[in-house]
Design a binder for these strands. Sequence first.
DNA 1: TGGGCCTCCCAAAGCGCTTTAAATTTTCTC
DNA 2: GAGAAAATTTAAAGCGCTTTGGGAGGCCCA
Lengths: 348, 348
Amino acid sequence: MNLKSLAEALGLSQTTVSRALNGYPEVSEATRKRVEEAAVRFGYRPNSRAKGLATGRAMLIGQVIPTSTQHEMVNPVFGDFVAGASQNLAQHGYDMLLTRVPGDDEGKVYREFRARGAVDGVIIQAPDVKDDRIALLNRIGLPFIVHGRSTGVTEPYSWVDVNNTQAFRRATEFLLQLGHRRIALINGLERMDFAFRRRKGYIQALENAGLSADPQLMCTDEMTEQFGYMKTRRMLAFEDPPTAFLCASMISAVGIRRALQEAQLVMGRDVSVIIHDDDLSYLRNGEEIPIFTATRSSVRHAGEVLADALMQLISDPDHPPINQLLEAQLVVGSSTGPAPLKAARLPS
Amino acid sequence: MNLKSLAEALGLSQTTVSRALNGYPEVSEATRKRVEEAAVRFGYRPNSRAKGLATGRAMLIGQVIPTSTQHEMVNPVFGDFVAGASQNLAQHGYDMLLTRVPGDDEGKVYREFRARGAVDGVIIQAPDVKDDRIALLNRIGLPFIVHGRSTGVTEPYSWVDVNNTQAFRRATEFLLQLGHRRIALINGLERMDFAFRRRKGYIQALENAGLSADPQLMCTDEMTEQFGYMKTRRMLAFEDPPTAFLCASMISAVGIRRALQEAQLVMGRDVSVIIHDDDLSYLRNGEEIPIFTATRSSVRHAGEVLADALMQLISDPDHPPINQLLEAQLVVGSSTGPAPLKAARLPS
DNA sequence: TGGGCCTCCCAAAGCGCTTTAAATTTTCTC
DNA sequence: GAGAAAATTTAAAGCGCTTTGGGAGGCCCA
């Protein structure tokens, strides 16, 4: 059933039927009723592509599946983020278009999006420090918003980000207050902006306390369970091991826990751990009492906020860039406690 | 730059330019060269919607974001599956269209897809036992393929599935061979087909060994860490506790491990654990020596296989249903060992 | 009674592409 | 070198929708 046959069945012109269904005022209420009823009865729905061609809008938001180039690892945050974002996109009639990057030229995808008119806007995930996608998108004039920020990019752009620096500064301060002096940082890849900022916050807190960061206690890699496990084992064997770990990911923290328990150490007593918790729906940090003390910020909520902002940007092309900084909560769980008098140490 | 201006710039008709770019034979090689060069030079790319309208194809595959209705939990497998599927879809020029379900009527989404011509095909995730989406899609005639199967659905349909029954039968047999007699099953939601089949395999193995399944040792819920933890604690406090756990998910198994270590029990010595491992990129089961003995089957690979099958179904509307059963590997890690002479037990 | 002004509806153009049917040019064949 | 056949190219229709620019009545007022 298309517009033409619906119009014929009603004995009306396509114009009138189209207007009736799209809420234009030049149609009498009686006619509109009649049209709407018929549309439901015949199960008429306007063809997406025809409508898009006529209106010039795709009603789609593009997104590249965020896989690390190194191990083709899919960002574990992706599912929840997408769930949040598309929920709010859907409220505006938008769907999400997902694509893989052939080779490693993500810029090519965006140029294609633009040239083909395939999407009306784009979401950028996991920006690096000095991410060049931002300049590209500004240049080609495709509406976009970044989930995260990019240190070093000076031109204006829209973003929704968690205050990572602040979160990790607070978390570090919290550990310092508990008497910890040797605090390890198990960080994500520091070419990524969020990890860069977290380290910054960590170092700031240490320096404010008159301490300097020990390079041996800072490590950075993809946030796997294995990574947390290996680094914890190694650091616990140091002459002067850390008494606390600050960890950028719930998943790596599971590895930390494994290493600690293997070493017969009790988390929160022998060694303290604070994590950043994206509040992933499939990996919740405990219901009432969190397992881990954490800086918490729901990535799903970030998706919702970001989607709303993008909808604004698209509906008003002259809208100035939207910047929204979300603060992380510091929730106290059972993985932290006062620094032990004598640091636990593993034989190397 | 659109087709018209490109044709004008070349002094050719739109027809010829279109044909040249789409590889039709009625164009001289010289002309084709000239057209292709100009297309690159001007950065011409055909408009997606216009092309779609003319050809009647959307070049999009629809998918509903798989969230459990209960806790809005996003299937943790989603990211990796999508990465696999869209990689192979992309090879055929297809992208993925993601949408949320407004309310709880997923069928409505598929009818919309069909009526609007928004997508050329659909991927169904996480089918239930007797899933009614299959009948609906067959009825409305939208090409689709199921990731998983649906016990109780008799009409033909296309699917790609892991041999869950076999995997869990083998895993159970393996534990039986190690001397375990009290084997717990920490299963996913058993209204879902994969969980239903896994239980079936588990029970078959027990019965083949002349044992009957103890309802107390079987539990089913959403596969969270918390779930694994709680159930393990509870079961270890039984009069006659299990000496082995069979767990449907890596994530719940992390909870099992937490409970065991809290109880000072050594996995693989005091208690054995086998998991199903979807080989998620962000939650790998160890590099050389797997942490967990597991029935392993890459969900990303399943996505690739499924995408190829769907491409076939779409290119040939008369293609008979494609059914592909993937076997899971049984990989032995360090979480299993001979049954202890005396079962470890927690004070209740 | 006629003109002006609403209200409601319609014909047709246009969005940017593919494809059918036909026209033109080139190449053979004898 | 004429005529047929083959190779190229083109004009125009069509995909299904929105939207522009009118147009037909009906109503009101002078």
